[in-house]
């Protein structure tokens, strides 16, 4: 069974975090929401595994409600 990888995987974590933040620069909250939705769809397809996605969604939802 495919498993969601949660250990640190980036060579340079700070660069990746900055990439995410910078991509939203100058966007309105609505535009950012659109960007995020497209990003999620692109990454979900890249992962290509519904089980991993389901696990990621489960973890992401923790503490939200």
């Amino acid at each position: 069974m495919a498993k969601l990888m949660t250990e640190q995987r980036f060579a340079s974590p700070d660069d990746v975090y900055q990439l995410l933040i910078d991509s939203h620069r100058d966007l309105t909250p609505d535009q950012s929401t659109r960007l995020n939705a497209k990003l999620i769809l692109l990454l979900a397809n890249h992962i290509g595994d519904a089980e991993v996605l389901a696990e990621a969604l489960r973890v992401a939802r923790q503490g939200v409600e």
Binding site: R34, A37, I40, L41, L42, N45
Partner: peptide
């Protein structure tokens, strides 16, 4: 949010085969 994802799919579908 359902509308946001729907519109994102339609936007991506123009150039991205998976969408």
């Amino acid at each position: 949010m359902s509308r946001v994802f729907r519109d994102a799919v339609l936007e991506l579908a123009v150039d991205q085969p998976f969408a």
